[in-house]
Design a protein around this nucleic acid. Structure first.
Lengths: 343, 343
DNA sequence: CAATCGCATGGTAGCGCTGTCAATAATCGT
DNA sequence: ACGATTATTGACAGCGCTACCATGCGATTG
C-alpha cells in the first residue's frame, strides 16, 4: 500500500449498503431507480441512508455514469431584469427535481457564448438552455454534437437546434406600433438601446408597421449601443424630440426607456398622452403603476424560463413535445399612455 | 475483460501525455502548476493539449482531488433587482478565474437555506457566499464544519462565521431618517414590504432616529409580509395616509416602494416634496431620473458581490484579509424629493 | 416436468484524474 | 571534486460510484 490518502470523513454508499445488508450496487440502484428493488430492501436501504446521513458524491456519480444532473443556462446579461424573471421561472421549474443549474453569462458576446458552449460540452450537462437564435455556426455545431436536449429561449425562429420557446419580437413590435397607428398617432418615434438581435427585430417590426401605413421616416429612429437605463430613455427622447419636434408618440424597446420618457415629459411639461403617447416593451410591474399608466407589450418571461426547464427535463426522460417550437406569444397591455387621439 | 463500456469519444489526459512524450502525471501538473515543469516539457504538453483540443474532465478531477473549483452562492431571491446587482459583481469578479458559481435560491427560507448548505457540504465547494447573518444554529454548524472560506454578504454583524462584507442597515436607515428630521420633516412614515431580517433592521434604524428626536409614533409604521413592488408602494402609502393625514414624509424600505409613493402622489396631486417628502433605499438607477429626483440610500451591491468573490478566492490561496469584516458603507444621495422644509 | 422467461441481485472492472512517495537529474557549497 | 540539496519526473493506487454481465430464483408454458 504505497498510498495513504487522508480518509474522507464522509459516508459512502458502501457503508450504507453494509448497514442495509445489501450489495453496494443494490444501494446504488435505490437512488436511481427505487422501483427496481424489492420492497424489503428498499426500506432497509432507505433507513440505512437516513441513519448514516448519506449524501451521494456527485463527482463520483458523474465520472462513473458519464452523465450529470446539471442543466446549463446561457444568459447574455444579469443586469437586465428581463432575465431575472426568466431565471425565476427556471429556478421555480427546478424545485423538487434532481437537476441543478449551471448559470453562465455570455455578456452579449457570441464568442464568449461559443467558448462557454465548448466548456459545457466537456462537462456533459443533462440539458442546455441558450438565449436567442443567433448563435455562430461553430456554436451550432457544438450544440448539435452535444447529444442532450437543448432549448433556445426568448425568441422563436425557423430552424431550432432542438427546441425553442419564445415569441416573435417582430410581431410584438408590429402589434404595438399598429396600435399607436390605429389610435391616430402618426409621427411615431423609435427609441432603442443596446441593439441586441431581439431589439433589432423589434426595430424591424416597427419599420414594417410604419411602412405599411406609409408613414415610415428614418429620422424617427434613434438608437444607441450602450446598455439601457431609465436616464438613457430620457436622453434619447430629448435628442429625438429636438430633431423631430412634431413627434406625437414613441415606441420604446423596453420599459426602462419608456419610464425615462415619461419622466422627461413630466420635466418638460409635455402631457402624456395628449402631447405624446408612450408604449414600452416587456410590461414590467411598474408600467401599470405609473401616472398615467403606461402601455406595454407583456412578454411571458417567467413562463419562458419555466417551460424551457420543463421541456429539457421531459426530453431527458424521452418525452419530446409534439412541436419543437413553442410560441408563448405576447399581449398588448393598453393603458392611458396611448389613449385614442382625435384625428 | 467483463466490461465493454461505450468508449467516450473524448480526449483524455493520457492521450495528451502520450503525444507530448511525457507521463500522464506530468501532463496533469501542467494544468495545475505549470511552473513546476521544465520549459521544454511545458511547451510540449501545451501544444499537445491544443492540438488534441483537450478539455479536462471536472468530475474526474473533483473525485481524484477531493476538491472542486465551484463557489456556492446562496441568494434569497431572484426577483429582487438588488440581488441582480450583487450577482453581476459576483460574475464579474469570476471572469478569467478558474472558478465557477453554483447559484441556489433560498426563497427567504432558513430551512431551505439549511438544506442547501448540507447539499453543498457534500459537494465540497472551494468557497461559499451566503446572504445575511441570520442563519439557523444548525446552518452555522454546517458552515463551520465546511473547511472552506465563507463570506456572509449584504450586512455586517459581530460574529462572522468566517468573513463578511456588507453594511449596517440600521445605520443606513438611521441616517436617512435623520436627514429628513434635519430638514424639518416631523411626521415621517415608514413603509415596509417583505420584512426580511435586513428590512427589520432598517425599521430599527428608523425607530432609533424617531425616538432620538422624540417623534416616534407607532402609527406611522405600516408593513406587509408580501413581496415588494411599485404598486404595493402606492397602496401602503394610500393606507397610511388615511390613518395619518398629517404625515409629511415617508421613508421607504426600498426604491420600488418609493417610486410607487411618487406615482400615488402624482395621482392625488400631492406635491413632492412640498406636501410629502420621499426617501428610498438602494438607489436604483431610476431614482435620479424621476421627477422630482428621489433621495435614496446608495448601497454598494455590485461591490459587495465583487468583494465577496475576491475574498473567497484570496482565502482559497491562503491570503486572508487583515480584517474579517468589511464595511462597504452607504451614501445618502440627497435629491429633490427631500428638499428642506420651512420650519 | 423440463425448458423458458423475467426479475431481483451481485461481482467485477473501470470512469479520468491526482495524492503520495520514490527515483532520477541538476545544482550547489566547501 | 564529492556529498548534499533541490528541481523534475514517474509509478502506483485509488477517489466513490455505476455499466455491464452473470447468476439464482420462482413463475410460466407446452
Amino acid at each position: 500500500m504505497a498510498r495513504q490518502r487522508t480518509t474522507t470523513g464522509k459516508v459512502r454508499l458502501t457503508e450504507v449498503a453494509k448497514l442495509a445488508g445489501v450489495s453496494p450496487i443494490t444501494a446504488s440502484r435505490f437512488f436511481r431507480n427505487p422501483e427496481a428493488l424489492s420492497a424489503g430492501k428498499r426500506e432497509r436501504v432507505e433507513s440505512a441512508a437516513r441513519e448514516l446521513g448519506y449524501v451521494p458524491d456527485l463527482a463520483a456519480r458523474a465520472l462513473a455514469s458519464q452523465r450529470t444532473e446539471v442543466i446549463g443556462v446561457l444568459i447574455p446579461s444579469l443586469t437586465n431584469n428581463v432575465f431575472s424573471d426568466v431565471l425565476r421561472g427556471i429556478y421555480d421549474a427546478l424545485q423538487g427535481s434532481r437537476y441543478s443549474i449551471q448559470l453562465v453569462n455570455t455578456r452579449y458576446s457570441f464568442l464568449q457564448e461559443e467558448k462557454l458552449l465548448r466548456l459545457f460540452q466537456a462537462q456533459r450537462p443533462a440539458g442546455l438552455v441558450v438565449t436567442g437564435i443567433n448563435q455562430t455556426p461553430d456554436s451550432r455545431l457544438v450544440m448539435e454534437a452535444m447529444n442532450c436536449p437543448i432549448v433556445q429561449i426568448m425568441e422563436i425562429g425557423p430552424d431550432p437546434v432542438d427546441m425553442m420557446v419564445g415569441f416573435s419580437h417582430n410581431k410584438a413590435a408590429f402589434s404595438a406600433v399598429s396600435h399607436l397607428l390605429a389610435r391616430n398617432y402618426r409621427r411615431i418615434g423609435f427609441l432603442g438601446a443596446r441593439m441586441d438581435p431581439r431589439v433589432q427585430r423589434r426595430l424591424e417590426g416597427y419599420r414594417d408597421a410604419m411602412k405599411a401605413a406609409g408613414l415610415y421616416d428614418p429620422r424617427l429612429i434613434i438608437t444607441t449601443p450602450v446598455p439601457t437605463s431609465v436616464s438613457m430613455g430620457g436622453m434619447l427622447f430629448a435628442d429625438l424630440l429636438t430633431l423631430v419636434p412634431d413627434m406625437d408618440a414613441v415606441f420604446c424597446v423596453n420599459d426602462d426607456i419608456a419610464l425615462g420618457v415619461l419622466f422627461e415629459c413630466q420635466r418638460r411639461q409635455i402631457s402624456v398622452p395628449d402631447d405624446m403617447a408612450i408604449v414600452g416593451f416587456n410590461d414590467l410591474e411598474f408600467m401599470a403603476a405609473a401616472v398615467p399608466p403606461l402601455t406595454s407589450v407583456r412578454t411571458n418571461r417567467y413562463e419562458m424560463g419555466r417551460n424551457a426547464i420543463s421541456m429539457v427535463m421531459a426530453a431527458i426522460d424521452g418525452e419530446r413535445p409534439e412541436a419543437p417550437v413553442i410560441d408563448l406569444g405576447f399581449q398588448l397591455m393598453v393603458r392611458g399612455s396611448s389613449s385614442p387621439r382625435p384625428a
